[in-house]
């Protein structure tokens, strides 16, 4: 799989993964899967556990 990084959405704080080669240092907008906010990697906030839709809390 392509190299990826974790990023936090500056609007909803949701945490998700994105492909490094597609977005890191690129002038391209990511779309937050939780709130659809568009932002560049430089605008992303620190990924946090249990944020957004709660990806770390998903029931097994």
């Amino acid at each position: 799989m392509v190299d990826m990084f974790w990023v936090g959405c500056p609007k909803c704080r949701g945490t998700f993964c994105a492909a490094t080669r597609d977005f890191k240092g690129q002038d391209r907008e990511m779309i937050c899967p939780f709130c659809s906010h568009a932002f560049k990697d430089t605008e992303g906030v620190e990924p946090q556990e249990g944020t957004g839709a709660g990806w770390l809390k998903t029931a097994k």
Binding site: M1, V2, M4, F16, C17, A18, A19, D22, F23, R28, E29, M30, I31, P33, A38, W55
Partner: peptide
């Protein structure tokens, strides 16, 4: 931008 998405592997594939 498209994804991330829960893939056939059982893991999320990153946003592309």
């Amino acid at each position: 931008a498209e994804g991330p998405y829960g893939e056939f592997t059982g893991y999320y594939g990153p946003s592309r």
